[in-house]
Amino acid sequence: MSLQDLYANYHARVQFLVIYIREAHPVDGWWLGGGLPGLMLKAMGSQAATDVYDPTTMEERRVVAGHCETVLRYGIRTYVDEIEDGVNKAYAALPTRLYLIGVDGRIVYAGDWGRLDSSQHNWGEPSRIILHERKPPRLSERNQPGPRRSRFRFDISPSKTH
């Protein structure tokens, strides 16, 4: 299941936020656009750009983020990290990363670094978490005997269905 599929199916139940952070492989950094890496990227059909310099101002960063949003067409509004990389650092997000956060504000899933671009993330586990999302129990149900509930408002047990 792709990110676009996840969003199409679950955006009413889950708030998706794409956050643009510092460029991972800009021309003026760890560039993968030349030589064999560049050829491999093209052969793999990656949508990652290979001609972008790392923005040095917030205005430049917003322009590149807007271009990225237009080209990658996730259909999800993109938000832009500040030039000091505060959110990127807080979540160790570079180069790509996925988190799911429960309604209680706690991390439910922390994805590993992605490869090349977000379309190549392993969406399997986050998909299962979202598929098994459940509402918190009613107050009248909370002290009833039964299976142990997840401490989160996502139920990550693959055996549960709703």
Partner: peptide, 23 residues
């Protein structure tokens, strides 16, 4: 535009954060 805070969703909806760049 459209400022957004993570805390806007606490108690409302789960949130999926997708971090990335263009390269």
């Amino acid at each position: 535009e459209n400022p957004i805070r993570l805390s806007d969703f606490r108690g409302q909806k789960p949130v999926a954060l997708i971090f990335g760049s263009f390269t």
